[in-house]
Design a protein around this nucleic acid. Structure first.
Lengths: 228, 228
DNA sequence: TGATCTAATATTGTCGACAATATAGGGGAA
DNA sequence: TTCCCCTATATTGTCGACAATATTAGATCA
């Protein structure tokens, strides 16, 4: 029973992250310090600390003496991120295949089973699949047992991915296919086939990336006039 | 002529980074805020901001209500980092092969020529090669033209690598070999052979990693009693 | 009318002081 | 002697105020 020891700056940071991800604080919007401090009921000290962390996870950009702005999302950057994910999660899958023990792989298999049930029950509804997808990838990332890799992927990068999903409505429109790919990856990990696990994971993420690119060409950039 | 506009927190942050990298502030050492503030002649406000940035680049770890400590370097973590570098710089090399223009590749070739001269002149002295190595990799990273990738590699990760090099004296003891590998990578990029560039880069970094592993087994962990 | 300079305002950067928490040291009991 | 508790100290977290810089609005001049 770990006592949730935390600080004001921490709590407010999490709040702001949530507000940025779900769009309460919009893209490109200026972060006014006195205003925000009032909103969250704290002083500017811890608020600035929180802002520093937001900067660290690249959710905002900061200019000295001018202030902080929420990042502007673009399809190009999203594609850049998926490219990085492909490399890094490929590595994670390889390591997971080498390092996950049998109880961990069993849990992973069980997770997939529950996902399958969800999909069957909801007739392929994608919302749950989204969180499930995150969860699946999250477990494999943990399974890599490379602390810095875990930090990079699960820490900062995933906040971004979540933000894009919220605001661009980038949800997998083919959860069955995604599940099948997850299944293949899981099997490779169970068998300890590191090379295959890496290759499958990279292809899996590349598929998602291509999916985004298709969407990017068919539909015009959403939320693109919101710059204000 | 860009005017170097900066803030106190920024300057002090850079100073501390330098002090951590060269060991002035040792591994695992506690960062005492009042003391540091006095040392650098600023108040605790901007100092804490600087500390936040150090935390962001993972040079220190922080515990609420307890304080900040410089990270403890270990060979295991160094290997973890090289694993990440292998993936990420492999990607960077692939993108560089696709995206660098002819003037950029010419500059890269020129850099290698100057490195060769240096090595011949200094009879294979490794110090210059170290910085030169950083420089070579740095250019390829830039050549990827993926801003987030550049940030990850050139921003945070390289500070760590530099710190290890300083404190573990991890210098390539075979600069000629390294130069040859650089040469191969450069050729692949010139020819736009993305696959080959990636493969060569990954092998290059893996060689360096194996080099570290060998060293790790032959000599005992240096600086290991310094924990205090 | 349009541009440029200037003054007023707003916002960020910095500081010192106070509150809350953790650490260290001494004294007492088993 | 050893362990535990309690107190004194040190350190981190938070706050409000002031200084420095940027932004805005208005006035003056071409």
């Amino acid at each position: 029973m770990s006592v949730e020891i935390t600080t004001l700056a921490n709590q407010v940071c999490e709040s702001i992250v949530k507000d940025i991800i779900d769009g309460t604080i919009g893209q490109g919007q200026k972060l006014n310090e006195p205003e925000l401090a009032k909103t969250y009921g704290i002083s500017r000290g811890p608020l600035r600390e929180a802002i520093s962390r937001l900067e660290a996870m690249r959710l905002i950009t900061r200019v000295p003496n001018v202030g902080a702005r929420v990042v502007q999302l673009s399809y190009e950057e999203l594609l850049d991120i998926y490219q990085i994910r492909e490399s890094l999660e490929g590595l994670a899958a390889r390591l997971a295949a080498q390092r996950m023990n049998s109880s961990e792989t069993q849990d992973l298999r069980q997770l997939l089973t529950s996902h399958r049930k969800h999909i069957q029950k909801t007739q392929g509804q994608s919302y749950f699949q989204q969180e499930g997808d995150v969860d699946f990838h999250y477990r494999i990332i943990q399974g890599s047992k490379n602390p810095r890799l875990i930090n990079m992927l699960a820490g900062d990068l995933y906040q971004l991915v979540r933000m894009y999903r919220y605001q661009f409505s980038v949800s997998s429109n083919r959860p069955e296919q995604a599940l099948k790919e997850h299944d293949q990856i899981c099997s490779a990990i169970e068998e300890g086939d590191a090379e295959l696990a890496e290759w499958l994971m990279k292809r899996h993420i590349n598929n998602a990336r291509n999916n985004i690119m298709r969407r990017m060409h068919t539909q015009s950039n959403p939320h693109d006039g919101d710059t204000l």
